[in-house]
């Protein structure tokens, strides 16, 4: 019984939150890794692209709510998501036309594009704050829980409760669908294969008649969809705040690099590695340990390895350790 209680506590406080957070990071890291593979630079504006997409979703959700539209037990934001994706796609394509394309024509070095993306980051950041302001916005509605602590306890008779938030369930389901679609697209369709070919060897792709502008356009479209989805899921799970998305840049970059930049599979693995390390190391283990250890050994302190404020430090240390032992990341960052 104690073992079961420990397991439930572990699931409730570590495993479920980490899976949800990991899915959000993975979706974010996928966008970063796609840009890195195909446009060949790390996009500093990615966090703000997520914020922009999420902002659109928030605004559309409010509009739908004011019109009395709802999605039953699911959050209305899911209905807003497709529109938000379209809006973000328009923004990134416009940015590419006005900003990035010029540098491609100039055959600019990737590091110049990194600096360019800083400028885009400033603009997007300003845009989001300009439109919706810098404050916290809540937009989640519908059922709050799939299983609540009380229901779980009544169901199982255990002392520990287990809660699964609707947003956590949705995060995982949506992330799985997105990833499946992405891999199907990259590995099974002509366009997807041409993207992989372009990422692998640009010159040979040109010689094979692959149109680079088309590849780049598809990349931005996919990135916009991934970023918006990641942004909305994160916002539903926590709350929407522009600055937080900017700060997500570090764990997202860390996920992409730990997995191996340019490798989509790596981005997903990296997202979960970072999420699980962050959650486990900043979790107070007392609750789990008190079931596992005999009473005499029961810990008096919280058994929290690091305070939650150091979660960035955790992603960073994991990153350094991986880079020291495997400089190319867990999955050799080869191509998209």
């Amino acid at each position: 019984m104690d073992f079961l209680n420990a397991l439930v506590a572990l699931s409730n406080f570590v495993i479920i939150p980490a899976i949800a957070y990991g899915s959000q990071l993975a979706l974010g890291a996928l966008g970063v890794t796609l840009i890195y593979g195909i446009l060949r630079f790390s996009n500093f504006a990615h966090g703000d692209t997520m914020a922009f997409g999420a902002m659109l979703a928030v605004l559309i959700t409010w509009l739908l709510q004011s019109m009395g539209v709802s999605f039953g037990p699911l959050p209305t934001a899911l209905l807003a998501l497709p529109f938000a994706i379209l809006g973000t796609m328009a923004l990134v394509l416009f940015t590419d036309r006005v900003v990035y394309r010029f540098y491609r024509e100039q055959k600019a070095k990737p590091v110049i594009l990194v600096i360019v993306s800083m400028g885009v980051m400033f603009i997007m950041n300003g845009l989001v704050r300009f439109i919706i302001g810098p404050n916290d916005q809540r937009f989640a509605d519908g059922e709050r829980f799939i299983i609540s602590v009380r229901e779980f306890k009544a169901m199982t008779g255990l002392k520990e409760g287990l809660a699964i938030k609707t947003t956590q369930g949705i995060t995982v389901v949506v992330a799985v669908i997105c990833v499946a679609l992405l891999f199907w697209f990259l590995n099974r369709t002509r366009t997807g294969k041409s993207m992989r070919a372009y990422s692998d060897n640009e010159d040979l792709a040109l010689l094979s008649g692959i149109n680079p502008e088309r590849v780049v356009m598809y990349t931005w479209l996919i990135v916009a969809a991934l970023a918006t989805t990641a942004g909305v899921l994160y916002g539903l799970d926590k709350s929407f705040k522009p600055f937080v998305y900017f700060q997500l840049l570090l764990p997202i970059f860390a996920s992409a690099i730990v997995g191996g930049l340019g490798s989509p599979l790596g981005a997903i693995a990296g997202g979960f590695v970072i999420a699980f390390s962050e959650v486990t190391i900043t979790y107070a283990w007392k609750k789990v340990l008190k079931y596992m250890l005999p009473e005499s050994l029961e810990p008096s302190s919280l058994v929290q390895l690091l305070s939650t404020d150091y979660k960035f430090a955790v992603s960073f240390v994991i990153l350094i350790v991986v880079l020291l032992f495997k400089p190319t990341g867990l999955f050799k960052g080869k191509s998209v």
């Binding site: 890195y36 593979g37 060949r40 630079f41 790390s42 055959k107 070095k109 990737p110 590091v111 594009l113 990194v114 990422s199 692998d200 060897n201 640009e202 010159d203 040109l206 970059f253 690099i257 930049l261 340019g262 080869k334 191509s335």
Partner: peptide
């Protein structure tokens, strides 16, 4: 810096 700029597969043509 390979964490920000992808050195592989770029065009040299």
């Amino acid at each position: 810096d390979a964490t920000i700029a992808n050195p592989k597969g770029g065009s040299e043509m």
